[in-house]
Amino acid sequence: MSEMMEEILGLDARKLLPGSLILIEDSVAAKGAFLLNYFLKKLLAAPHASVDEAGGGTTRVLFLALSEPFSHYNRISRKQGCNLISYRNSGQLIFLDMVSDNSPGSIWTKGLKQSALFGLYERVNECVKRRGMQKSGEERTVIIIDDASLLEVLAGGVQNEVLAFLHYCRALYSGSHRCGVVALVHADTDSNRSLSLPVDGAQSPAAALVQELEHSADVIVTVDPLSTGLATDVHGQVSVVHWTDALCGAEFRRAPCTLQFKLLESSVLFSHPGGKF
């Protein structure tokens, strides 16, 4: 991945504030799933380079896959030089595959039960706690959620359940730290979002999930199609807004920044708007 993205995102697994929420918003025209791979690789691989530094320790990743199965992520990560299977075997990656889980007791077949997400949280909690007991309490856990919008489907459209679930993921203790959460949501599936966003906000009848999450997110990464129209060699643009100092530290606040990206077979190229890849 390009250094440019690292520069504007400032993601450092060791400095990630506990309990922070990084929100990836995408749309139909530009999918943001490639950023999940970026986060996955960055979080899993980064601490190895700096194991001897103070505050090193590994960062565990709990990947909650609701839209794509493990094989999909494994294939993409392998192309980027990151073997998910070995991470999974070492216990650093916990992959909760909700897609290919078709057993009778699975979360989908349970259907629209009122507290479907409580069941899911039970599993997440169990995974985080079980692993946390084995090793020292200093390591951190980041929960990556592939498509929080699907959580709403899972909860039978009850938005509060989704918010509560995400809140619990952030509040969850792993060792002595709370978990960080990286979640992907679709910004354009909310009905009142696709209409013009009310300027004075208060007029909207009920706030959308994305809006609610935006209020509590520490960093918002938005993936959009190119603002100037379609182009053959630019696939879209990513803008990063740091609302709190969760990623970049208080000493310097980063300004909102936009990069254009191009998806290749095995990697993603970033450039400043109008620049060369």
Binding site: P198, A207, H215
Partner: peptide, 11 residues
């Protein structure tokens, strides 16, 4: 209170 999450009458 986050004003844009609620109806005007709530605020």
């Amino acid at each position: 209170v986050h004003g844009d999450l609620h109806e005007a009458r709530v605020v």
